[in-house]
């Protein structure tokens, strides 16, 4: 592999853009195709399918064996709420290979002392989320318990293609939230995208246990096509 190609792949990943490396297994020739430059490519159909599935694999084209290394952006979690649960969640998620960013306009909560080594934005979701850009490789957690902060975050997530949206709060709290979102113009299908109460039901009690249940639900959503039927 040419160093330029490796650098290009790394740059595309850093910019959160999907790309595919095409390697000719016979000669070793390689090229990179960005998702935005797919139209008109001789392998357009095969590559489009790979971008959808995110899976690498071999294909045959014109009697040649090609390997497609599919590179999708790293999964990112935007946690709204610099709360106790987020303090437990951030290190767990990092071990699982997820990029975590914390958003909370309350400067008493969003402090580097409470969140060492975690990207932290002491801003309202309305400011921070458009800049972060919620894409289909992003999960959004609404964890503040405060509708003034959680609701705008959830609205932004529902308007995006975020693969996972979770909201902390009891069933009662969530029923009131659904009312507010309905009044704001969101449909039933939108509500179905929200995991609430957030997390897998593992009987979690402490903030750390709740963080484990959220992480488990997030992975289960990410890998749903691999799961055995319940």
């Amino acid at each position: 592999m040419n160093l330029d190609i490796l650098a290009l792949l790394n740059a595309e990943r850093a910019a959160r853009r999907a790309a595919i490396l095409v390697t000719d297994m016979a000669g070793g020739e390689q090229r990179v195709v960005r998702e935005a430059e797919l139209a008109g490519d001789p392998l357009e159909e095969a590559l489009a399918e790979r971008f959808r599935s995110g899976k690498s694999g071999l294909v045959e084209a014109d009697g040649r064996e090609l390997f497609l290394t599919v590179q999708v952006p790293p999964v990112r979690v935007v946690a709204v709420g610099a709360v106790h649960i987020s303090q437990a969640f951030a290190p767990l998620a990092r071990v699982a290979g997820l990029d975590v960013t914390i958003v909370d306009p309350r400067t008493a909560f969003a402090t580097p002392e409470r969140f060492p080594d975690v990207p932290l934005l002491a801003e309202w979701p309305d400011e921070a989320l458009p800049r972060l850009g919620l894409d289909r490789y992003t999960a959004l957690l609404a964890l503040t318990h405060d509708p003034k902060i959680d609701d705008p975050a959830l609205q932004a997530a529902l308007r995006s293609s975020a693969f996972y949206i979770g909201a902390l709060g009891s069933r009662k709290t969530h029923a009131r939230r659904v009312e507010r979102l309905t009044q704001a113009g969101f449909a039933e299908a939108d509500m179905a995208r929200i995991h609430a109460p957030i997390g897998l039901d593992i009987g979690a009690v402490s903030p750390a246990e709740i963080a484990v249940s959220i992480l488990a639900e997030l992975v289960a959503t990410l890998r749903r096509d691999r799961r055995r039927a319940p």
Binding site: L3, L6, A7, L9, N10, R13, G54, V72, P74, V75, A96, G97, L98, V219, L222
Partner: peptide, 18 residues
Amino acid sequence: MLSGDDDILREAERWRRE
């Protein structure tokens, strides 16, 4: 991906540049 393959290719680039 959860595998951390991201960091691996970044390291490969860094090693080569060294």
